[in-house]
Each structure stands twice: as C-alpha cells, then as structure tokens.
Design a protein around this nucleic acid. Sequence first.
DNA 1: AATAATATTGAACGATGTTCAAGGTTCCTG
DNA 2: CAGGAACCTTGAACATCGTTCAATATTATT
Lengths: 209, 209
Amino acid sequence: MTKALERREKLRAALIQAAEQMIAERGLAGLKTRDLAREIGCANGAVYNLVADVDELILRVGSRTLLRLDEALTLATNAGESSPRESLVRIALAYCDFAAENLQLWRALFEHRMETGKLVPDWSVHDQMQLFRHIYQPLAALFPERSPEELGITARSLFSAVHGMVALGLEQKLVAVPLPALRKEIAGLVRAMIDGLIARDVKGAAAAD
Amino acid sequence: MTKALERREKLRAALIQAAEQMIAERGLAGLKTRDLAREIGCANGAVYNLVADVDELILRVGSRTLLRLDEALTLATNAGESSPRESLVRIALAYCDFAAENLQLWRALFEHRMETGKLVPDWSVHDQMQLFRHIYQPLAALFPERSPEELGITARSLFSAVHGMVALGLEQKLVAVPLPALRKEIAGLVRAMIDGLIARDVKGAAAAD
DNA sequence: AATAATATTGAACGATGTTCAAGGTTCCTG
DNA sequence: CAGGAACCTTGAACATCGTTCAATATTATT
C-alpha cells in the first residue's frame, strides 16, 4: 500500500505545482488538463486520480497562493515603525506588491467561479477568512471602543477598498496605471480612510449625518 | 440593399438582447452560441454574420450595461441634497444598488477577459471612462485647489475603493453580507474617505507622512 | 505464486466556439 | 423584367475542451 500512495502523493504535488506554474504563465484560462498530464508525465485521464476535477485543482493552487500572500502580509505587518496607521499602510502596499508580482495567480483567486450548485469545500473557505486578521490587529489598536464584530466589519471594508484599488489599478481594461503611482494613491487613500474614520469616531458616530 | 440590412439589424438587436438576458439568468459562463441561435431563430453559424465572435457580443452587452449604470448614477447625482459629499455617497450607494440588482450583468463587465493579443475595440474602451465623470464633478467642488489630472486620479481611486467594497461584499465566496449592512458600510467609508482627504489637504499634502 | 485490489491508460463522449462550401435571397443593371 | 453578381443562411464538419470508462498493467495480500 505504501509504494502506490507514495507515488500518488508525489504526482499530486507535481500536478499542483505544474498547475500553479501554468496559471502564472498563461492565466486561469490557459490551464489545460492535457498539457498538465504531459508536463508531469502521465496520461490525460490519470489527472482525475489525483484530483476530482479542475475546480479542485484551481482551489488547491489558490490555497498555496493565499498562503504566500499571508506570509507577505505578515512580513509587512512587523517590518518598519509600529504605529498602527503605518502598519495598515504597509499591509495595503504589500497587498498591492504581491498582486503585481503574482498577477495571474492573484487574479485566479477572484476570477474562478464554481459552477452553480457545486459548493466550495471547507478547507478552501477557511483560508480566505485569514486575510482580514492582519488588518484586524492594527485596527483594534486604533479603535479600542469598537466591538470585535464592528472591527471585523471595518477590517473587511478597508480590505475591500484596497482590493478594489489594486484590482482596477492593475487592470489593462481601464487605463493602465504605473505601479509607483498606484502605490502612492493607495498609501494616500488608506491614510485618508483611517483619519476619516478616527474623526468620525470622535465626533460621535452617525449623529453627524 | 435595405431589406437585407434591415433584417440583419433586427436580428443583431435580438441577438444582443438575448445574450443580455442569458447572461443575466445564467452568468457569463452560461452564454452559448447554439442556445442564442435557437432563441432568435437562426442557425448556429449565422450568429457570426451578426457579430465577429462572442467577445464582441459580450462587449456589446457590456456597453448596454454601462449605459444603464450611467443612467442610474446620473439619477443619483441629481437627486437629494446638493452637498458634494452627500452626492458622492449617493453615487456610491447607487453603484452598489445597481450591482446588486444586475448582479450577473455587472459581474460580466469585470469577469470577461480578452484572449491575450486581441485588443478591446475603441467603442468599448470609451464607455468605461465615462463612469468616473460622475465622481469628478463633486470632487472638483470639494477640492478646488487640485488640478484636473489630480482630480482624475482621486476620482478613479474613490471609484475603485467603492467598487472593491461592492465586489467583495456581493461575493458569495467570502461571507455573504446582507445588503443593508453593506450599504451602511459603504456610506460610512465614503464619508470617512472624503473627510480624511479634506483633512490631509488642509494639513499640507504629503508633508505629514 | 496466485489472486484480489487498485492504478493507469488512451480511446471515446458530449459540449463548445468557429469555419466553410453549398445552396438561397436579394439587389442592381441592361 | 431577366439575369447575373453580391450577399446571406445553413448545417455539417473541425478543433479543442473536460470528463468518463472498459481494458490493461501494476501492486498488495493471502
């Protein structure tokens, strides 16, 4: 039982790695089972012994991408001055840089859509939540009055806003923005958002509108 | 020459409308030429007389979606109190509402990717720029010191940030957010961004970092 | 060593976008 | 109005996918 499973696991790892490289080079749409099979040296049909379908394969690659992204954000959180505000700026810029350096893999995280009715497996869903936690800690330091639920919501909003800037900024479809300009814009708007949130906090929440 | 062209134009319009409905119902991936042909009553191959390929078809549908979106944003700009800040909030909420009510068509605007090498035709690129102009006017009122180029950049950043919140907020992939909560978050963050931008403006631009 | 369990293969299937020769329509011209 | 040129429509055929499966080869167990 060992020999077979060992080989199977080796091939599985090779398959996922080949898929990762193929997505990085040719985009999500360029991922072809026949090319993958040739790459790892097995028959086309054998792919389905290692993985249920391409959906799973894409999710497995996505899991690795999320892991690397997580590392990059962790690195950004701890490096540099420790003011929460500047930590958040560094995290946002790290997100931007990661997306730029891993453009196709990063895009694959959001482009991929399961066919309706098929639900995303647990191990894949779990990964995605982790991203917010980097933002959560500095936010908690900035807004000690807010409840964990409120902080979670604010964290997701901030993350989403930065994600949007990165997504549209790196898109060829709209006007291409040079990366340094994009980084500057992101840093500026993150600082503005934080300052604005703090000001609104002091002033008394929603009473001002 | 009139009879043939007339029929052609009628069929073309029917094709685009059928494509729009099909995307709205089944998503971008559910768009199939054979189904479209059956829908409008012609042969599968005839579709390629009306349209160069499905890429063009998708772009044509996208053009219509952008037009309707533009109308919705125009409506939001003029309705309600005329303070630029609240105009921007209304525009952001209108964008959110439009995306929620036209989820699949709105997604198609961003999901669709041309195969590499094929470039987007002019008439399609032109449409997309128009969206920023709704944001531009209130922004110009809020920041009279800024140059048109700076305003354009800020407008795109603001738009992108809101887009990100809407995109991730409406995504099933991450935790589903109830629409009213999302609207509240968007309104709050837009106000915070504007307040923060104004504060940074007063304080002396980038000198503070 | 024989037999059971499992893995691998590559041909085949069903979709799908796209093309194309054949045959029909429509339009212009004399 | 007749006849030919230009154009349109058709549906079969092609290439390319993901996926399946009976047959074969390999591995594990007794």
